[in-house]
Design a protein around this nucleic acid. Structure first.
Length: 243
DNA sequence: CCAGGACAGTTTGGTGAACT
DNA sequence: AGTTCACCAAACTGTCCTGG
């Protein structure tokens, strides 16, 4: 006689193993403690053996429970994988995604990788421009979706990451001690530029611009070479030295 | 003959309460 | 904190009927 193993029972079994008790497992599973207790009982009746050793208020896996554990994990995972494969809509098409140059190198690749795994039939066209231009093109419906860097959270968007700007310089360089201070500011359209200039004026630091290209590579090159310092978002400057 | 809908009886699995 | 029990709702199953 063949019997089918109820995935819900295995899920309850795994939750009890992970939490070490029925009450916490029930909270995770959105069931009452009694329901989970009954599920474990049904599973034990199905296999005709005890899966746990009840020690005071702790549930410890019995040898049979140990045998079941690995297979239960695989069965639940396969169930979930199959469920997702059969119920997730298979969207097709193209998404025009706009991203500013300062975050495209370090922050965007893992996002694109996860997106591509989740929606393999959607082609992403990446457009790299200053945040100001991206906002204009989104308003004109030339882009489907944009990521922007902002001083403050604007309306109509969602804040995905909040971080502070830091001054960075090349490893071993004393560029930050020079006056006037050589500063690579990037594009004149950069949203951070007015705030950075204001901060320099407030600190009464005499400065001069170095790289003002909208492309980040010249900026990185001048910083790495010790020709300038630059204000960057921390996640975007792992190879440099924070001053 | 088969597919599909309606219906009734049965089974399953959840909850709350009482108890250990 | 866990188990057991009574109760209840939902899901399942089998049967009958109808239409293509």
């Amino acid at each position: 006689m063949t019997r089918d193993i109820d995935i819900a029972l295995l899920r309850a079994f795994l939750a009890v193993v992970e939490t070490g008790g029925v009450t916490t497992a029930a909270r995770i599973l959105n069931r009452t403690q009694a329901a989970v207790s009954l599920q474990i009982k049904r599973l034990e009746e199905l296999f005709g053996t005890e899966l746990f050793v009840r020690e005071k208020k702790r549930f410890i896996l019995s040898p049979a429970g140990e045998r079941l554990f690995g297979n239960a994990q695989r069965l639940v995972a396969l169930n979930d994988e199959t469920w997702n494969a059969m119920t997730t809509p298979q969207f097709e098409g193209e998404v025009l995604l706009g991203v500013p140059p300062d975050i495209v190198t370090n922050l965007v690749p893992p996002v694109l990788q996860r997106f591509n795994q989740a929606w393999p039939r959607i082609n992403v066209s990446l457009i790299c421009k200053a945040s100001t231009l991206l906002l204009e093109e989104l308003a004109e419906r030339k882009l489907d979706l944009i990521l922007t860097t902002e001083i403050d959270s604007g309306s109509g968007g969602e804040t995905l990451l909040r971080d502070r700007l830091v001054w960075v310089g090349g490893p071993g360089c004393d560029t930050h001690l020079q006056r006037p201070l050589p500063v690579s500011l990037g594009s004149k359209l950069c949203r951070f530029r007015p705030e950075v200039v204001k901060a320099l004026q407030k600190a009464r630091i005499d400065w001069r611009p170095v790289s003002q290209d909208c492309n980040m590579e010249p900026l990185y090159a001048t910083v790495r070479a010790g020709l300038a310092v630059a204000p960057l978002m921390r996640p975007c400057c792992p190879a440099f030295r924070e001053i």
